[in-house]
C-alpha cells in the first residue's frame, strides 16, 4: 500500500537530501533538543538515538519531561500555545523540525497511542478505518483488509470480528486501548509512540498490552512512556531516565536496571525517590 520512500512522504513539496543515512539501526536521532512552554524550560539539551525495531522506555517522575519528549517526536507539541522547540529530531535522515516538513505526513509515519484510550464514538470498523480513509482509500474490500490486518496485529481480532459494526465505546477499557493501537497501526507507521498506554488498565489488560508490545517490536520502532518501572523492565530493550527536563541516563534496559552509571538513576530505580 505504501512503497513511497519515507523522505518523500515527509517532504511534501520538495525532495529531501538525506542528512544521515549511514546508520540503519537508528530510527530516530535526537540532537540538542530544547523545549520551552512560555517561560518553562521543559526539555534541556536532550540528545538520544532511538533504535529501530526495538522498544525504548522513557521513565522518570511526573513532570520530568518524558511525555513532552515523546510528543516532540510526532510534533504534537506544535498545537500547544506558547511551545517553542529548538534542536533537531532526525527520522530516517530527515529533520522533522526542518522548514519544509509536512506535519500531517510525519504523523502517518510516527503513530501515537494515548494514555487514556480514546476511540471515536464510531463503530469499531470506522475507528480503525479512520486513518486509511483520511488518505483517500475508499475501496471497501481494501479497507476491510487493512482493518482486519490491524486488528490482528493488535491481538483483538478474535474478540471483535463478529461485531465490527458495533460502537467501539461498548468495549472494555483494555479492548478500547487495543482498538486505539489497531487504529494507529492501520496508518502503517514505522514508529509507534505510546504515552503510558496501560496506566488506566487493570492488570490482565495491562499484561495483554505488554504482550502486544513484544509482538509489535518485530515490525515497529516503539517508544513508550511509563510510570511503572517493572513495566519498563519487562517490555523495553532500552531505557532513558528523565529528571527535571534532562535525560540523565540512557542505555540498554538490562544495564540501567542492574548497574546504572549515575547515582540518580539508581536512586530512582530502587525507589529511593520519585
Amino acid at each position: 500500500m505504501m512503497n513511497v520512500p519515507v523522505e518523500e512522504k515527509i517532504f511534501h513539496a520538495q525532495k529531501a537530501v538525506p542528512m544521515d543515512k549511514h546508520n540503519s539501526s537508528i530510527s530516530i536521532k535526537v540532537k540538542d533538543l530544547n523545549v520551552y512552554y512560555s517561560s518553562v524550560h521543559a526539555l534541556k539539551s536532550v540528545t538520544l538515538d532511538i533504535q529501530k525495531k526495538a522498544v525504548t522506555a522513557l521513565i522518570g517522575p511526573s513532570g520530568c519531561g518524558k511525555s513532552t519528549f515523546l510528543r516532540t517526536l510526532n510534533r504534537m507539541n506544535d498545537t500547544l500555545p506558547g511551545a517553542r522547540i529548538e534542536g533537531s529530531v532526525i527520522i530516517d535522515g530527515v529533520n522533522i523540525y526542518g522548514s519544509e516538513i509536512n506535519v500531517v505526513a510525519l504523523r502517518r509515519i510516527v503513530g501515537m497511542v494515548f494514555q487514556k484510550s480514546n476511540p471515536f464514538p464510531k463503530t469499531i470498523f470506522d475507528n480503525v478505518a479512520y486513518g486509511p480513509r483520511l488518505q483517500g482509500i475508499k475501496n471497501k474490500s481494501m479497507l476491510e483488509g487493512i482493518v482486519e490486518e490491524s486488528l490482528k496485529k493488535s491481538a483483538i481480532w478474535d474478540e471483535v470480528k463478529d461485531r465490527l459494526e458495533k460502537p467501539a465505546l461498548e468495549l472494555s477499557g483494555g479492548q478500547q486501548q487495543r482498538i486505539c493501537i489497531a487504529r494507529a497501526l492501520a496508518v502503517n507507521p514505522e514508529i509507534v509512540l505510546m504515552d503510558e498506554p496501560a496506566s488506566a488498565l487493570d492488570p490482565i489488560s495491562t499484561a495483554k498490552i505488554e504482550e502486544l508490545i513484544h509482538e509489535l517490536k518485530k515490525n515497529y520502532t516503539i517508544v513508550i512512556v511509563t510510570h511503572n518501572m517493572q513495566q519498563a523492565a519487562r517490555v523495553s530493550d532500552f531505557t532513558g531516565y528523565f529528571y527535571l527536563g534532562l535525560l540523565v541516563e540512557h542505555g540498554e534496559t538490562k544495564k540501567i536496571f542492574t548497574t546504572p552509571d549515575k547515582k540518580e538513576t539508581e536512586d530512582y530505580i530502587t525507589g529511593r525517590f520519585g
Binding site: N74, M76, T79, V104, A105, R107, R108, G111, M112, F114, K116, N118, F120, P121, K122, Y130, G131, R133, L134, Q135, C180, R183, A184, V187
Partner: peptide, 23 residues
C-alpha cells in the same frame, strides 16, 4: 483527546473538525 487522536493519525485540522468533531 479525540481531536488529538485524529491529528496523531495524520488528519489535518479541518479533517479533524469535519470527521470527528462535527459528527
Amino acid at each position: 483527546s479525540h481531536r488529538a487522536a485524529s491529528l496523531a493519525l495524520g488528519a489535518t485540522k479541518w479533517q479533524t473538525i469535519w470527521r470527528v468533531v462535527i459528527p
